[in-house]
Design a protein around this nucleic acid. Structure first.
Length: 401
DNA sequence: TTTGAGCGC
């Protein structure tokens, strides 16, 4: 068992760049005997990363250091001191993390801490700041226990602080939050999807059916496909929509069909919270290609697609980030590869999809689509490995999207 | 407006 991540160590952050190990030692040795100190540094040029560790001989000295030296000045800069917690999962998800926003800009890190410490022991805290140190007006306080977080939220949410009334809630990660927003927005929709209609429904009849039962229908449209009859009904407000679902979902029609009524689901991609990406700019011009072959190269990709129009760029990507492990001795790629062909016109891209999808290339079907399905393969964003032509040379390049 | 991730020899 490593002696480092136990409760005899403290994590010190917001260190000025010039703070040395000696300065750190001098600042903390008033709390008790120290085994070691460490300032974490860039591996290339040894510049300080702005945080480090002080390892005491006893847990009680470490606790005392957190208490005594949090917000102390070292080399003229206020530092934060907290119990070291190297286990990332412990730091990230204990369900005791509070998000705070709408903070008056005059509230600094220390004030934030003081406002929230009455509700229980704090594991970590952070005020979001501009590079110049000015508050961004939001921050995080993570307690040791969920109970403290619940108490803090109950007491502090809506509280007037300086010019503003603050907002506090359990912290949600970006992805959790976006799911949440989809549900919220679904609950607010005024558009309903109706299925299992009997054949005798048309637009008029559907409108009348809803009108009679719930009133205030703004539109109704019936569709028939593969022998099924379904439709969309819009109502005046989301309360009516919710009432309609409660009242009509599961109703039996005259012919015995069970009517199903649900909200029209919004897709996460269409939410206004989603930032436009570089990828969107390529929509319509870019074609995604998946193909299994051990010599699938950019040159080959260009040759395959040249007949559809001018190609701005063609790239091949390896399925796995462990690409190098999948290169055989002839330096040919094997394993799943995929690529993108960027055309200079949307017409060329459409034609490529239409004529190349499922076409046989060297006896194998090739999958060609206007939309990439590669985003869900767990790729880290940013830099990606790209195969060089035939010689298997690896280079890193930015993804196309 | 703003929903993290700084944590080691």
């Amino acid at each position: 068992m490593s002696a480092i991540s136990d409760n005899r160590s403290v994590f010190v952050t917001d260190l000025a760049e010039e703070v040395t190990e000696t300065a750190l030692l001098n600042a903390f040795n008033t709390c008790g005997p120290i085994r070691s100190v460490r300032i974490c540094r860039h591996s290339d040029d040894r510049r300080s990363l702005g945080y480090g560790y002080v390892n005491f001989l006893t847990a009680s000295d470490a606790r005392q250091a957190v208490h005594k030296l949090n917000f102390a000045q070292i080399c003229g800069q206020t530092v934060k001191v907290m119990a070291a917690q190297s286990d990332r999962t412990q730091r990230v998800s204990n369900n005791a993390n509070v998000f705070i926003k709408n903070l008056d800009k005059s509230i600094d890190t220390k004030r934030l801490y003081e406002l929230f410490i009455p509700f229980g022991p704090i594991m970590s805290f952070k005020l979001a700041q501009e590079v110049n140190g000015l508050s961004k007006g939001f921050g995080f306080v993570q307690y040791e226990s969920e109970e403290s977080a619940v108490k803090a939220i109950a007491a502090m949410n809506g509280k007037q602080l300086e010019s503003k009334s603050i907002f506090c809630s359990k912290f949600l990660s970006r992805s959790e939050r976006s799911k949440h927003l989809v549900i919220e927005s679904d609950n607010k929709t005024t558009h309903l999807y109706v299925k299992n209609l009997s054949d005798d429904f048309d637009d008029n009849r559907l409108a009348k059916y809803f009108q009679t039962l719930i009133g205030s229908v703004t539109s109704a449209k019936v569709y028939r496909k593969s022998g099924k009859t379904f439709g969309f009904v819009s109502v005046e407000d989301s309360d009516v929509a919710n009432t309609a679902i409660k009242a009509l979902d599961g109703q039996h029609l005259a012919n015995g069909n069970t009517l199903r009524l649900t909200r029209v689901r919004k897709v996460a991609e269409s939410l206004p919270t989603d930032r436009p990406t570089a990828r969107n700019r390529l929509d319509g011009y870019n074609v995604y290609v998946r193909y299994l072959d051990n010599c699938f190269t950019e040159k080959r990709l260009r040759e395959m697609f040249a007949k559809f129009g001018a190609i701005a760029s063609a790239k091949v990507f390896a399925e796995s980030s462990e690409w190098s492990l999948r290169t055989n001795q002839q330096n040919r790629n094997y394993g799943l590869l995929y690529g993108f062909v960027l055309f200079t016109t949307p017409e060329a891209a459409q034609k490529a999809v239409r004529l190349m999808n499922n076409a046989l290339v060297a006896k194998r079907p090739v999958f060609v689509s206007a939309k990439s399905t590669a985003v869900s393969t767990g790729y880290p964003l940013g830099r990606h490995m790209i195969t060089g032509p035939r010689n298997g040379r690896q280079t890193f390049a930015k993804r196309l999207y």
